[in-house]
Design a protein around this nucleic acid. Structure first.
Lengths: 165, 165
DNA sequence: TCTTGATATGTTATACTATGACATGTATGA
DNA sequence: TCATACATGTCATAGTATAACATATCAAGA
């Protein structure tokens, strides 16, 4: 049975005030260690995703970058988002054509997302790559996985509760 | 441990000559039973997907439909593809913004796809919804899933073999 | 110092993906 | 006959993403 994070963030109410700066600091450290440049646009893009705490379209991110004095053309956003996703600081939600800051940037993982179609919250659950469903299928078929997309649409606990009321 | 189809089609060489007509006949039967109309455009769209045996973009499908005398505007393709995906005759591969005929139309299943980035083949593996990874995560978090997207990119057995050579 | 190469940011232009809104046709049933 | 539901077609537009090119910066090496 695959491991999973029993407490994915995203649906739980939590103190949001410090998590942005903490995450940026962690990202900064990580980039330094890895010899990567967390440049102003890239850092700002990460902050934007962290502040929202939900999936944002590339053009949403672009609009805010532009407001903050960065370039106003699509490649500005796409390049920053490419950097963040490539290095595990953000993920693309394929189902939504949107991006979200990574909730577990510290460790290598195969992210799985739970997308609430009612309130549009997105929770990231962490799974153990080596035991995941996809790995098992791959093993059975001789396929070598380089990247997995695991996304579920549905209703989150909070919205389920409201429905019942 | 999740069940899985040990022999997903897609990477295995197989006799392709009859599978299109068989699949169309099965789809026709299914639609009749369910009171659905497998109209000419819809049937032709399904045939196009079946003939290719890989993921096709909506505009690829549109081009062929148009060649065959159907409408030439995007909604023609999107509506046919919506019908097919809605009723389990085809699936959308979110990672590719593309569509593929369903390999297991007869039974309710949560499809999982293996996408070869080298030869662009796409294999569909069948998983048991009730035991899948996503269901387990959902259970642990109180999330109610309505639809799951399970897609893996990587290298298929055939292309792995070629690489080694 | 000068130069080369790698990286990063910005631009313009364009390509690819998808849907809204409306007109028409056809079949079913009241 | 009329109303309704559904299907197909159109035009127009919205939303997502990348190619190609100019410029700037910085580090490594001649």
């Amino acid at each position: 049975m695959p491991e999973m994070d029993p407490n994915p963030i995203g649906f739980a109410k939590h103190d949001h005030s410090h998590c942005v700066q903490d995450a940026v600091a962690a990202a900064d450290r990580m980039c330094r260690d890895a010899g990567l440049q967390l440049t102003p646009v890239r850092q700002r893009a990460l902050e934007i995703l962290l502040e929202e705490h939900r999936a944002l379209g590339a053009y949403d991110v672009l609009a805010r970058l532009s407001e903050d004095g960065f370039g106003s053309q699509p490649p500005v956003a796409y390049r920053a988002l490419d950097f963040l996703t490539k290095h595990g600081l953000a993920h693309k939600i394929e189902r939504l054509n949107a991006f979200i800051a990574c909730a577990h940037p510290e460790d290598r993982h195969t992210p799985a997302f739970l997308i609430c179609t009612s309130c549009h919250a997105v929770a990231e659950a962490e799974t153990d790559p080596s035991h995941s469903l996809m790995s098992q299928i791959a093993e059975a078929t001789g396929f070598r996985i380089s990247r997995a997309v695991l996304e579920a649409e549905g209703t989150c606990p909070n919205c389920l509760e409201k429905e019942d009321a």
